[in-house]
Nucleic acid binder design. Structure first.
Lengths: 86, 86
DNA sequence: TTTCATTTGTCCGTATGTATT
DNA sequence: AAATACATACGGACAAATGAA
C-alpha cells in the first residue's frame, strides 16, 4: 500500500481506513493493543502527526481507546453487526 | 494464567488481582505469609520489579503488610470497612 | 561469632509507548 | 521533527534485616 498525496483523500484518512480494515477483520482482539504511532510512522513513512491523526479518527469512531503511556486498544463493544452465537 | 502484555491492564495489576483473589478466597489465613516476590517471579516469569509492584498494590489497599527480610503477610483486620479508634 | 540462605529495600540503566509542546 | 514528561517493563547489583547452622 502506498499513500496517495495528490488525491482527494488526505493521508491520515487513508491510513485510518487501512487500520480500520485490519481491526474489523478481526486481526486484533478486543482490548488488544494496535500498532503504535511509531510503528505506523515506520510502516508508511509519514510524519507522526499524520499517524496520530489517523488513530484519532478511529478513536472518534469509538473503534479504539487510548490509555496514556500504555497504548491504543481495540474497543470491546465495537460490534455493529450482531455476532450471534454466544 | 498468563500475563497479557498487549492489553490495557499492566502486568503488575494482573498479578495483584490474582493474588487478591487468592487472599480473599481464604487461601491464606490472617498473619500468614503470602508468596515471596521471588516466588511470584518464578511463577509468572516477570521481573522482580513487577512482582514488587503487584504486592505494593495490595499493601496500599491494606490487604497485606510487609516486614523486611521476613515477608509479606495477610492483614488481620482486612474485613473491616469502618476503622475505629484513630 | 561467623557464615549462609532467604527476603525485602533501593538504585542504576535500558527499552517501549503515548502525550504534550 | 525533536525534546520532555509520564507510565511501565526488564535486568542487574548491592544493601539491610532476619533466622538458622
Amino acid at each position: 500500500m502506498e499513500i496517495i498525496y495528490d488525491g482527494p483523500v488526505p493521508p491520515h484518512k487513508q491510513i485510518a481506513a487501512w487500520l480500520r480494515t485490519r481491526i474489523e477483520s478481526g486481526e486484533f482482539s478486543p482490548n488488544q493493543r494496535v500498532p503504535a504511532e511509531t510503528a505506523i510512522v515506520q510502516e508508511w513513512g509519514v510524519a507522526r502527526t499524520t499517524a496520530r491523526r489517523a488513530v484519532a479518527v478511529l478513536r472518534d469512531e469509538g473503534l479504539v481507546y487510548t490509555i496514556q503511556a500504555r497504548g491504543t486498544f481495540v474497543s470491546a463493544e465495537r460490534q455493529e453487526r450482531s455476532p450471534e452465537g454466544s
